[in-house]
């Protein structure tokens, strides 16, 4: 893990890391219900942030608010150092092209082929030749590990894992700096999920991406995340490296990381004789 962090942070490690997403005092709610309550969160350039939390605790709501799909009640969201609320329309449009989003179920346009899906952002926002768009689409397809003949298929003809990959290719269409992933491994079998994790890690390194990943998957957290933030009852209860998470004694975090599934993985982790890892305090 340490190894991974030094390589991914590479350039940024020398000086203070640049904050790509800065959330301050964010409040989001529906009706009487407050889903996200006074949340602060930072995401630094070049890192993979895993965002965890139980179902219905506001993970996806927070992500959708950062993306501008939901309205906030209070607080500020800065992306690349710019507050979106105060940006003029035109600049906001440009800001939104610096990120790519992988939705939970892919959200591929069902009436278009995979290639057309990948080309959609380029066709709408860039002025490039047809040939170049074709080549770029095929390149992206190859980057995400899809066979070339998938290009002319419709999303309905793809398997679950292929849909995720195609959607990732579309998210990468404009070469974004920031990638949002909403439960990227959900609905994939363990082998597919591991492969997808690896794919994200590889792409993150080669393309120098910053990744904000909402997930449930403990394996993903262990294998590719540099930092983890946890949300419970609308508040960020902890944020930091995996070790901090494991050491935390917040009941939810404890149950999450030291539950049956979590223990199995921490067991695997301790066998790797990672020096920085300390066993979690025994609370019972």
């Amino acid at each position: 893990m340490n190894e991974l962090r030094t390589t991914t942070n590479g350039a940024g490690a020398k000086h203070a890391p640049e904050t790509v997403i800065r959330v301050r005092g964010l409040v989001v709610g529906f009706g009487d219900q407050v889903v996200v309550d006074d949340v602060d969160l930072d995401v630094y350039r070049g890192e993979v942030l895993g965002f965890v939390g139980g179902s219905g605790q506001g993970k996806t709501v927070l992500m959708r608010t950062i993306l501008g799909l939901l309205d906030k009640r209070a607080g500020s969201i800065e992306l690349f150092g710019k507050n979106r609320d105060s940006l003029p329309e035109e600049e906001r449009h440009w800001l939104e092209q610096r990120w790519g989003v992988l939705f939970q179920n892919g959200a591929l346009f069902s009436s278009q082929t995979v290639k057309q899906n990948i080309q959609m952002p380029m066709r709408e926002n860039r002025d490039v030749s047809h040939r170049f768009m074709d080549e770029l689409a095929m390149l992206k397809l190859e980057l995400v590990g899809l066979p070339a003949d998938a290009a002319d298929k419709l999303p309905s003809e793809l398997s679950g894992g292929m849909v995720k990959r195609a959607a990732l290719a579309r998210a990468l269409s404009l070469d974004p700096e920031l990638l949002f992933l909403d439960e990227p491994t959900s609905g994939l079998d363990p082998i597919g999920a591991a492969e997808f994790d690896e794919l994200i890690a590889t792409l993150q390194k080669t393309l120098g991406l910053t990744v904000f990943m909402v997930t449930h998957d403990l394996d993903s957290l262990y294998s590719i995340c540099d930092r983890v933030a946890a949300i419970a009852d609308g508040k960020v209860i902890a944020a930091g490296a995996m070790e901090t998470m494991l050491a935390s004694d917040h009941p939810w975090l404890h149950a999450y990381f030291h539950g049956v599934r979590g223990r199995r993985l921490t067991g695997a982790l301790s066998q790797r004789k990672d020096e920085t890892w300390k066993p979690a305090p025994v609370t019972r």
Partner: peptide
């Protein structure tokens, strides 16, 4: 040399 330069790069 990025896609944002669109046809200029080409």
């Amino acid at each position: 040399w990025t896609l944002i330069a669109s046809s200029l790069v080409e």
